[in-house]
Amino acid sequence: MKETLLEIEGLKTHFITKKGTGRVVDGIDLTVYKGETLGIVGESGCGKSMTSLSILQLVPEPGKIVAGSIKLNGDDLVTKTEKQMQAIRGNHISMIFQEPMTSLNPVITVGEQIAETIRAHQPISRKEARIKSIEMLRLVGIPSPEERAKQEPYQLSGGMRQRVVIAMALACNPELLIADEPTTALDVTIQSQIIKLMKDLQKELNMAVLFITHDLGVVAESCDRVAVMYAGEIVEKSTTEELFRKPKHPYTKGLLDSIPKINEVQEELTPMKGSIPSPFTEHSGCKFADRCPLATDICFEQHPSLVAYENDSYQVRCFHYNESTSGKDVGHAKQS
């Protein structure tokens, strides 16, 4: 039986402004098991990044967690004080962000930025922390780490910086690594190096990864399970294998159809109509209904809940998921 590491229940993170309430994260249930990679995939504004910032209690103003619990090994993080969270961040849960160019402090050496993370959580001397930081740099495949540790971020390339960011995140051996679009800003050849590195390190350090991305290709290659988010909700959740073979939710299908395929010839893409709704929009029915090719009256009237399909590990939020799978075969399964 898989051991639960992180359990999110009914999480709602809202932006309360004068204009109204932005339901950025609107009722998320999610479990991350020890040692696995869970992908959260969705387009910009779907709430995937806010979900991850909610886990660390780092939601920016005017955002606020208004409901739900986030349990790490059974311990609810939502009720923790700022001080208690500081002991968890970077120690039990680490996070890496999208932009390697801006996520490192430009005036502090990379070695020190790793060392300070270690010293924030472990009672060791400056010297020991420095030695450990060099070890970390070596671990993430940075050549001549002794010299690199003394350099400042501007002296490193984008790929190198992302390796430093990873070294920093892993320095305290976290149980969970949240990776928010860690490769989006990188060139493809560097992206594949970084993904490979993350996979290797995950195995070596036996940690769970919550992989947040807009790129379905990256998900297919690096995640065990995947949750698809749309407008602050999870619309479909399954093992990567099953989800890509036979997606049930029309949004997931739409996403897959929108991507130009490298391994087949297509005259025309099949895009979804319309665009992502603002989190300030009020919905009485399904949030995807007005873009959905299968939508019927019920979709505009009632809000579908996440229901199990065949077994508990496959969940989908759609009244018509049976029809969508019996429709035309999803074109991405063909091989060239």
Binding site: G90, N91, S94, S103, A120, M168
Partner: peptide, 10 residues
């Protein structure tokens, strides 16, 4: 990078 520092538990 300030967000990063916070995420490190500094």
């Amino acid at each position: 990078y300030i967000r990063t520092a916070k995420a490190k538990g500094i």
